[in-house]
Design a protein around this nucleic acid. Structure first.
Lengths: 144, 144
DNA sequence: ATAGATGCAAATGTTTTGCAGGAAA
DNA sequence: TTTCCTGCAAAACATTTGCATCTAT
């Protein structure tokens, strides 16, 4: 049960950092873990609000920041300027459908090594990268 | 003289679209063309202001939007969320130094074709992409 | 003369912060 | 009972818009 694991690791993190376990943090974590990933702050806020009428944006954002620090979540910034959160997992990049907003993850070791080649050509040390392909997904372009 | 060419193509665009040639537009264009590229709205504003005390951000942003529509400029969005403008030229990607902010352009046809392979694997049609490598440039990491 | 441009001030939209009151340890 | 949280309102920040005024044509 992945949720249990993640919840435990949050508890652990909170404990290690002298932070408190609260109803709001649990609610945000649960919504985040139940999402398919790539969820925005607003979406989390709206979903949490269904069970927890009084929660504010403030708490959602603060909690998501916390989850990022705890290593459970990662912030992603696509072209629309709205921060999305995904569950931290092994390295990957994204295909983003400009019509329906669908986000597909992919991984390509050939590209990764090509990146290293390019970087070393410029004496550059790559710490992270961002690689996004924008277009139309299968469902949004039937005449493909 | 590339500036002459670009200025002429702006004039042409303005004329074709029944827009007026103004002192402000000329000033913004000149600053933009003199920049090494990847200049922010704020930087343009500050530089234009030296010669043209009363110009507002509004005009800078509106003019840059115009230059984009005219095909002279392209908006770029890196990780810091601040829009940068570069002179439109053939397709390329970027290395961004996280210490000094330097931006280096690169091109890699192997990566481009790998992207197409991946996209077609998902029935995805790529319209554009974004590929940025973040790290430390040669000057910012002497012990490389 | 008149369509279009300018610049100020105010609005936008997302995310963050200050602060007084509330809850976990 | 103290430390940490919460939620509100307000601020931040880059960019955009409304509007009255000004200007290129």
């Amino acid at each position: 049960m992945p949720h249990e694991v993640e919840q435990r690791s949050l508890s652990q993190y909170l404990e290690d950092h002298n932070l408190k376990q609260t109803r709001q943090r649990e609610a945000v974590l649960e919504v985040f873990l139940d999402a398919t990933g790539h969820i925005t702050g607003e979406e989390i806020y709206n979903r949490v609000r269904k069970q927890h009428e009084n929660i504010g944006y403030t708490t959602v954002y603060r909690t998501m920041k916390l989850l990022c620090e705890a290593g459970l979540a990662v912030e992603r910034h696509f072209d629309d300027g709205i921060t999305r959160y995904e569950i931290e997992h092994e390295h990957h990049d994204h295909l983003v459908c400009l019509r329906c907003g669908k986000i597909i993850e992919f991984e390509c070791s050939m590209i990764e090594s090509a990146q290293q080649d390019i970087a070393s050509r410029y004496g550059f040390r790559v710490l992270r990268h961002r690689h996004e392909l924008y277009g139309h997904c299968k469902d949004c372009e039937p005449e493909a």
